[in-house]
Amino acid sequence: MGLKEILEHHIVDHIWSWVNLGPLRLPISKHLLMMGIASFILLVVLPVLIHSRSKALAPFRSMLEIIVLFLRDEVVYPNLGHKGAEYLGYFSTLFFFILVLNLIGLVPYGATATGNLAVTAGLALTTFALINFAGIREQGLIGYFSHIVPKGVPGWLYPLLFPIELIGMVTKAFALCIRLFANMIAGHIVILAFISFIFIFGSLSAVVGFGVAPISVGLVLFTLMLELFVAFLQAYVFVFLTAIFTGAAMHPH
């Protein structure tokens, strides 16, 4: 079994069956199951944490509160202004959804749904929709499209800049999609490569294989810690960039 099969087995989605919903042919897959589990966790755990008054849950409630307040004070308000309070629910949900999906990927038998281009594309599309929705809501349809090209640009450049800016909007969302996908998949590939080292060296000689094993496992553990950090970091980066783009669409100056 080569590295290709191993990688595809561990990282690529497993589609179990298909559902036909009108013209759409929708897969029932492992990553969908992971999203379902993540949604279930969020839907159950967050309200319970928030509404409970028990002493044992108080630290977790405080952590949750700290994260949400951080998102509000450091991400949403600086970029969106104080009208951003309405969008705080979106950003908080986005952060925790991506975070939980990332973390489920680190659990045994879990799979990283955010390491699937289709999933990150879905998240990027919602961001794209949010950017345009917030921009149009704030400035009106005409105002929004007239502000797509920055002010102070000579008139003859408009025909050139308008398509470029339109492409830029798509590019932002596309970059978000690729960034999250690549970051989540990279750690897994590195871990699989480190573990494969054991078997590559083991095929030379069993002794060398056993000698390499501790080093490999150490490196894997290190990478796993790094992935844990990246799970939080990428959730934050995705939310932060979404906030920057939304803020830029709302306040074009």
Binding site: D13, I15, W18, L24, R25, L26, P27, S29, H31, L32, M35, G36, S39, L42, L43, T93, L94, F97, A113, N116, A118, V119, A121, G122, L123, L125, T126
Partner: peptide, 15 residues
């Protein structure tokens, strides 16, 4: 697999 994109958007939107 763009079917999953649909699921993601649906799931996230409902969330």
């Amino acid at each position: 697999e763009f079917g999953l994109t649909f699921w993601t958007i649906l799931c996230f939107g409902l969330l």
